[in-house]
Design a protein around this nucleic acid. Structure first.
Length: 401
DNA sequence: CGAGATTCATGTGAAGTATACCTTTAGGCTTAA
DNA sequence: AAGCCTAAAGGTATACTTCACATGAATCTCGTA
């Protein structure tokens, strides 16, 4: 037994990895070149370039489906600008924020606080008045002359959650600055998003607009090939693997991020199975695994009450084909609360939590009217059965049930 | 039979409350001159 | 007397509760053909 283990570990060291540079398949990796996005890069660079002369660049709004390279281009261009700025000792600061991240940038206070933190100021997580944080932020900017560019990724989620007042406040910010300049890059998956905000905000925040088309299958394949060349040893990726990967991702509105992740996970799976090559079948496994991991990840990061709510939903749904309703879930939820000593929330709150779980994509909740029998959310599960099982046991352990 | 009223179970918005955390202030203690 | 620490006071953001009203289609009601 122990011999077998050491053998395995010994073997692991000597074994040649399939990867040469796994990082280049990870989603936060910025490659040296961005195929099929040259135009967008030039355009964005053109918009942001004035920052290098210490002038305020126009605010930009970037639209495009997930995995169409929005974030990549924004990152790519900012890196370029930062590099040039540094060489010429210009004070240009570019901050990237993902507004969707819970407890980081999902409220006005937290967003500003986070930006200020990135600029090296210590802001407490709560307790300060929001306008005090604004003041700190303005003071910070005025301390030395600089151009600040804030990239707000998934900004539609933020506005959906807390309203568009924050955008108004942000746009007004620049009038309080002397010396420094500030501009924003908003990134949104939702094409209709800007039409639903205050027109005053709209005009000032989207001085420039960019739309990113989705990649088609051919382009995806080219991108994949490029990255695969960086990430894997030669000849490791088997026949037809890249093609299949590209086809899978193209099916999902040309999501390049997904294609890359698929490729990476397929590689990991192949490696774990001690294969010499990545084969087509690995992609199928990878697809399952990715979805599962994504869900498990986002579930395990939720607060306790969310977990308990989800657990209640899962148990109520189990074995049932039809969707379940808020009332059913609440009943079960209360039962679990007493059995594990958590004070139950009100049904009002539970409704909100269910809505949030829906937003996360863990469950599917739709408001329906049952006519004479009232109105409720119809909750159903869309996840594959094995995933549900895993989550259920995970939650069970986590909640001590 | 069909138009309009009714009804149910919960959605949804606003306002209030509890909690955790922040800064400021005042008082008490220590320390150094 | 100055400096430092601590506790209380006064304030905020956030998660949650309470209250009150909104919703919308199945069902009911009742006048009419």
């Amino acid at each position: 037994m122990t011999k077998k283990l050491t053998e395995f570990l010994e073997h692991y060291i000597t074994k040649k990895s399939l990867f040469t540079n796994k990082k280049s398949l990870q989603s936060n990796y910025t490659p040296k070149t961005a195929p099929y996005r040259g135009e967008q890069i030039n355009q964005l660079a053109g918009i942001l370039a004035p920052s290098l002369r210490m002038e305020k660049p126009s605010n930009v709004f970037i639209y495009g489906k997930t995995g169409s390279g929005k974030t990549l281009v924004a990152r790519y261009v900012s890196q370029g600008i930062m590099k040039v700025a540094q060489k010429n000792s210009k004070h240009v600061v570019i901050i990237y924020l993902n507004c969707k991240l819970k407890r980081v940038a999902d409220t006005e206070y937290r967003l500003i606080a986070q930006v200020a933190r990135e600029l090296g100021e210590d802001i407490p997580p709560t307790g300060l008045p929001t306008d005090e944080v604004y003041k700190i932020f303005v003071r910070l900017l005025n301390k030395k002359q600089q151009v600040l560019i804030i990239i707000l990724d998934e900004i539609d989620q933020l506005v959906h959650k807390i309203g568009d007042d924050i955008l108004y406040n942000l746009t007004r910010l620049s009038s309080e600055l002397h010396g420094s300049e500030i501009s924003f890059i908003g990134i949104s998956n939702d094409l209709m998003f800007i039409d639903n905000v205050d027109p005053r905000v709209k005009s000032s925040l989207s001085e420039e607009e960019m739309v990113f088309p989705a990649y088609n299958a051919v382009q995806l394949e080219k991108i994949l090939r490029q990255r695969v060349g960086l990430a894997f040893h030669d000849g490791v990726v088997g026949e037809g693997v890249v093609e299949k990967c590209a086809a899978y991702a193209a099916r999902e509105h040309g999501d390049a991020r997904r294609a890359l992740e698929l490729m990476r996970v397929a590689g990991e799976i192949a490696e774990r199975k001690n294969q010499e090559k990545v084969i087509v079948e690995d992609i199928d496994f990878a697809e399952e695994k990715i979805e599962k991991d994504r869900i498990i990840d986002s579930v395990s990061m939720q607060p306790k009450q969310f977990k308990l709510t989800l657990y209640s939903i899962l148990t109520v749904c189990k074995g049932l084909e039809r969707g379940v309703f808020t009332g059913d879930v609440y009943e079960v939820y209360r039962k679990y609360c007493t059995s594990c000593g958590i004070t139950p929330l009100t049904q009002r709150r539970l409704g909100d939590i269910i809505a949030e779980l829906d937003m996360l994509g863990v469950i599917n909740a739709k408001v329906i009217s049952k006519g004479r029998y009232g109105r409720t959310r119809e909750i159903s599960l869309t996840l594959p059965v094995p995933t549900i099982a895993t989550i259920t046991t995970l939650l069970q352990e986590g909640l001590g049930l």
